[in-house]
Design a protein around this nucleic acid. Structure first.
Length: 189
DNA sequence: TATATGATTCCCT
DNA sequence: GGGAATCATATAG
């Protein structure tokens, strides 16, 4: 292969399917990023989802066209990145929780103020800091500049488990991870 | 208008 | 292992 292929992710699929199929894809922002190793699915019927109580000023992007970025402020400090999916108006998304840093390592280290590769993108807030993602990216298409989404280069094995850092629907196994990756925000068991 | 809270991370003990 | 930092948003009054 000579030309990088765009990841053929169908964002009209369910958030669970999208979350699983994103594992192993490469996400870049202005050429900086890496391999997606951890995601979580959130759905309209899901008490843990921002979209559960219907559209608001904050979450309205989740109810718009699929394949766009939904970005929100977490704990007053961090930005978190989601991909909108399912049919328009449904209110479903996939949280990007961790990357294996591949491109622009030096830029990422400066942004993160950290040298240890394992901790550069291991967590949703860390991913956004490393890639320079803020609310200015909210609503942008994730396969158009400055974003790039590339398909996995080889076969990968995906782990499944309960989601992290939420207080509702904590038994729902909608967290997905790249098997054996040392770049997960937390291990699967 | 006012208050409570969180899809987190970092630093201290 | 525990708690602080810090603020946009949601919800109540």
């Amino acid at each position: 292969m000579s030309v990088p292929s765009s990841a053929s992710i169908d964002f009209f699929a369910s958030s669970v399917d999208v979350a699983r199929s994103l594992i192993g894809s490469t996400l870049l922002v202005n050429g900086v990023g890496g391999t997606i190793v951890e995601t979580e699915a959130y759905d309209h019927d899901d008490p843990a989802s921002h979209s559960f109580s219907g559209p608001t000023q904050r979450n309205k992007v989740m109810f718009g066209p699929p394949g766009r970025a939904y970005i929100y402020r977490s704990y007053g400090i961090h930005w978190c990145l989601n991909f909108v999916c399912q049919a328009e108006g449904h209110g479903a998304g996939v949280l990007i929780r961790a990357l294996e840093p591949v491109a622009g390592l030096e830029i990422i280290r400066v942004r993160r103020g950290l040298n240890e590769k394992r901790l550069l993108c291991a967590g949703p807030g860390r991913v956004c800091q490393a890639l320079g993602i803020t609310d200015t990216h909210n609503g942008l298409l994730i396969d158009q500049p400055p974003f790039q989404l590339l398909a996995p280069e080889e076969q990968i094995h995906v782990l499944t488990g309960p989601r992290i850092g939420i207080s509702k629907a904590t038994d729902t196994p909608w967290r997905f991870g790249l098997s054996g990756s040392p770049f997960l925000s937390r291990p699967f068991r």
